[in-house]
Design a protein around this nucleic acid. Structure first.
Lengths: 277, 277
DNA sequence: CTAATAGTGTCTATTAGACAGTATGTT
DNA sequence: AACATACTGTCTAATAGACACTATTAG
């Protein structure tokens, strides 16, 4: 091997074309909250988690649904910037909560060639999306996430279509409960994106208890009942109101606004109060 | 654009050489626990966190220390497999705790070319390493991690050398306390590896409270005093023994072995008791 | 009035924090 | 004996869980 006197000389002589390279993408699980419409004037409309899917109009996986994503330009952007560029294209918003989730890299995850994908979770209040969505993009409600043993069954809905898929969780590390995922049923979703959806939902579920992550999906003003509903749909369990209110008490502040017209006692609207450090 | 009848036809015609690609590496923060030697026969030897660093013998960053790592072979291995291959080479062990940490991808992080690195945290009980280390590899003790405002100062030690570096944490997301890191002092460590070290230590610090991650660094038999020492050095704070014992009570089981010869009351040796699910 | 949700008071159970005390080895 | 750590008992403080109760609206 050639000996170099210094780093500058080494770099000038460096030829990266002799090494095997690969492509990377950023894929984004964009999550929000919807209201399930309701006919009974008394009942409040229940909350649901929604995710944005895009219908592929090219091969591979033509006509399947996938997460918004795109190839990284290795010369001039980071994965974060790539994710933001894609979000901007899909939602026309720049100020969106974004968090790196996991890097997915099964060798065969893309049939074209080796593509490693760094997945992101993005959270948004859907009501802020005033612009019309890209015509291939649609919000799906997560109608159900059911756990049976180590199998997770998802049901996604939009007005035209229902999507189902199932993932098996295999415990690979006892000390920290690490699981590997294998897709055991999936007809509608492209790539390994079912895994990304599950990993992202579980990330939010974990973080909801020790961070203020939920407020990225809430409107500016909300009732404590709505907030509790969102916690319940994310956690998949009912909470008791007094305990819930104690826990979130110092994350919210009362406003002088009220939500009325609901066939029951009106409720005070609250705002998110970020911790002053 | 050419129209394809089906996916097979599309894939047969697919040419990935027309897209810009990049290189990826797996870098591993291998962490263990050491005993700080002690002269007073009465005192117990205090615990320290140790990490494995490798001295680079080639450009770039020749003669600097870096984390063990290596290029991903895009044709035939996953990032996990790549990390395991490197660990095997460094430690000759296959059964090591391994967890994906974060994907680091600053554009200029490698002066040669664009290299995205997926970092891993690996934990091991150093006593299991019977084979001699690779001659370029050395364990460094983390002598100090001090926080002043949002600046973190590291001091690493081995017998010959002391390494210091400082990282500034910039809050980029209030709701979940996400920080970006910037290296503000560093003379000895290659690439952006100071960031990886900080991120890895903080990951372990977070997980120690809600998982059994710590036992991956412990010997098979340990005293509760040793275990508490490890918690304290990772958390950077003193704990009260009665509370600590209550918390870890159902993670450990008593053995009939005792640790004697220490100038004070002998202590019972315990074993890790993994949760039966 | 009724059904539905909003909101609070309070008791109990559980968990965490603190301290003091006893126990037992080596030199 | 002296020192250092091992280990436990118990009081107190803080937090979480549960339930019952009152409040207030649209229809």
């Amino acid at each position: 091997m050639k000996k170099y006197k210094n780093e500058k000389e080494f770099l000038e002589d460096y030829d990266d074309t002799k090494y095997d390279k690969l492509s990377m993408t950023s894929d984004i699980l964009l999550v929000s909250v919807s209201n399930k419409d309701n006919t009974n004037y008394r009942k409040t409309s229940k909350k649901m988690i929604s995710i944005l899917l895009v219908k592929r109009d090219e091969f591979p996986f033509k006509d399947k649904w996938c997460l918004p994503g795109g190839f990284l330009n290795p010369k001039k952007e980071t994965l974060d910037e790539c994710a933001k560029r894609i979000l901007k294209k899909e939602t026309n918003l720049s100020e969106i909560y974004l968090e790196q989730l996991y890097t997915f890299d099964d060798i065969e995850r893309d049939p074209r060639t080796r593509v490693v994908s760094t997945a992101y979770v993005a959270l948004v209040d859907k009501n802020k999306l005033t612009d019309k969505l890209n015509e291939n993009a649609l919000w799906f409600d997560i109608a159900e996430i059911s756990y049976q043993d180590n199998i997770v069954n998802f049901t996604l809905n939009n007005k035209q279509e229902t999507i189902k898929f199932s993932i098996k969780k295999n415990l690979i590390e006892k000390t920290t409960n690490q699981y590997s995922y294998s897709i055991i049923k999936n007809e509608s979703i492209a790539f390994d994106h079912p895994k990304v959806i599950l990993a992202g939902i579980e990330r939010i579920r974990n973080k909801i208890n020790y961070t203020d992550i939920v407020f990225n999906m809430m409107s500016e003003y909300f009732t404590l009942g709505e907030l509790q509903d969102v916690y319940e749909v994310i956690l998949g369990e009912k909470l008791l109101a007094p305990a819930f209110r104690r826990i979130i008490a110092n994350k919210v502040e009362k406003t002088d606004k009220m939500l009325t017209g609901k066939g029951h006692r009106p409720s005070v609207l609250y705002k998110y109060k970020s911790k002053s450090i």
